[in-house]
């Protein structure tokens, strides 16, 4: 069992066999850790898409580049690795909502204050939602997919989805819009170890220094600009650049 898998199991109510005790895990007499015992996140893994089809990846590339366009302020969402980030998140535990309460019934008319009440996992939201978006585009824009529209048309469509003015066939436009926008922002600002925020583009945009973990100097010098470059969990370098 790999370390990270072990940690995922430990934190859940999953079934594990321990050799040290007949039941659960017993702590007696001393603290149960060893020096240098750490649990890093899952690595990005092999190059290529782990969840997306090439067509889905092209659609998401186009969306993340409208949400965060490349401009004079810096790289866009695609260049910053947001699509890779989303692909890897969907292929991991986030993609199936395995940590969430997903037992039914799922009534069709929840109160807005009751929050998430859809049985659709993020994987299903992307698979069904991107297909619905492209079906809509092909019907409305001369058989072109979302990625083949010009930037103005893409912006208009996304704006309509955000406002609830666009109805996709058999999928909630608002759900797709909200999920992709939220995941794009996660990818742009998460540690580069997850495949997004490449070259710390997100952190550089706003001046977030990352994981420096010691700002006593800042506290002692109020209202001064912070000049050190950002660092991530792997230091000053970004994660490997798979898969594109």
């Amino acid at each position: 069992m790999t370390i990270s898998t072990r940690r995922q199991l430990l934190a859940s109510a999953a079934i594990i066999v321990f050799s040290r005790a007949a039941f659960g895990h017993t702590i007696l007499g001393k603290l149960p850790w060893r020096p240098n015992e750490v649990y890093p996140p899952e690595p990005l893994g092999s190059p290529g898409w782990h969840f997306f089809t090439p067509g889905e990846a092209a659609t998401v590339d186009a969306m993340v580049d409208r949400f965060i366009p490349a401009d004079e302020l810096g790289p866009g969402g695609k260049q910053a690795g947001c699509t890779v980030f989303i692909d890897r998140q969907l292929s991991g535990p986030y993609g199936t909502y395995e940590w969430l309460y997903m037992k039914g019934p799922f009534p069709a008319d929840p109160l807005p204050s009751q929050g998430l009440q859809s049985p659709l996992t993020p994987r299903q939201q992307y698979r069904l939602g991107l297909a619905a978006l492209n079906a809509y585009c092909r019907g409305k824009y001369d058989n072109r997919a979302f990625a083949q529209l010009d930037a103005d048309a893409q912006d208009k469509l996304l704006d309509g989805m955000e406002k609830g003015e666009v109805q996709l066939p058999e999928f909630s436009a608002r759900m797709l819009f909200g999920t992709v926008l939220a995941n794009t922002m996660e990818g742009f600002f998460a540690d580069p170890i997850y495949g997004g925020n490449r070259d710390m583009a997100g952190w550089k945009l706003i001046g977030f220094p990352g994981t420096r973990y010691d700002y006593r100097d800042v506290m002692q010098n109020p209202n001064k600009p912070y000049s050190l470059p950002p660092v991530g969990l792997k230091g000053r370098v970004s994660a490997d650049r798979s898969p594109t």
Binding site: A11, W33, V38, Y101, E186, A190, I193, T211
Partner: peptide, 27 residues
Amino acid sequence: AADFNITTAPDELRYGIRLEMFLRPAQ
């Protein structure tokens, strides 16, 4: 030493957004 190690602790996505150390609603 093991679970809040400085090389893994400051990870907003893992702990702040995906909420790795909290109760999971599935539980």
